[in-house]
Amino acid sequence: MKFNLCCKVLKSSLNRLSIRQLSSSIQNQNDLFNAELKRQQNAVGRIEKINVVYKGVPEDAELIMNKNLSTPYNCAQHLSEMLCNRSVLALVDGVKLWDMHRPLESDCEVQLLHFHDTDPYHCNRTFWRSCSIMLGSVLSRVFKEDVQVALHSFPSPTVKSGSFVYDVELSLPDWNPTPAELRVLSGEMVKLAYEEIPFERLSIGQDLAEELFQHNRHKLEQIPSIVQQSLDGKVIVYRIKDHIDISRGPMMSNTNHFGRCTIVSAHKIETDVGLLYRFQGVALPKAMQLNHFAYGIIEERAKKLNSGRLPTIQGEYQPAMTSREEIAAPV
């Protein structure tokens, strides 16, 4: 393949990546995640029923679901396949954004959001955030073994900035990605979308979080401040396939919402924590179609260094969410 010749740093061809071996640390991380997930599911105990009122198309409905087990996605399964496929995010009681795969906790009213809503602000933001975490997942495994990769974080997503971002520490002092290497990254992102992987959400305690991220010093440093900021002293982690990352969420329901993607640049940024690479990309949901000329304009703009907050040492992982972000504005 052509990629073999030009990718000095990345695992050469696109094909070889798919049959990669799980490294022991990733395996260990996943075991911990699975154990915690199982523990939480078992902790539900006796199954109680809750009344879920669905508002929206094709018609309003009232569903009786299982407390702490049923998710908005399960509600959608009762209603329509169309809803299962297109829903990105749920809006609980008209104020809380809720992941599609997060169990509902009490009687509530659910609305399902998608990219073609009249005001898709929250869907777009969620999409951008999910793109960042997917980029992190790709970056953590796409480099050759001799390159040390330590994911740092990503600033809170703003679609208007023109690109989604992940800040990463690489053991490469001076690396300028070639267009072919960027194309490999883009291809990996799209492959992740083809695999149709649901985003798994888990809320865990500080001890477990530190155990999960013991191999990543940046994340370890961030965990105490995250715990401090959160209301219940928990850390929220997400898993895509075998990649686990910290984010307050919410994330979109599945990687298959992801359509077209280009990773456009990796800027070197000097920060308090050392030299980081700011990977930037632009993507569109599968539901959106755009001609190549317009997409080219967006791509071109995304190459400029994103003005998102630079990582700092004492700086919190993500700025505390403003009310607009956590609570959906009534449309």
Binding site: N124, L290, I297, I298, R301
Partner: peptide, 11 residues
């Protein structure tokens, strides 16, 4: 407000 139009508007 669709995502591509937000991006294009900013561009």
């Amino acid at each position: 407000l669709l995502i591509q139009n937000v991006l294009l508007e900013e561009a």
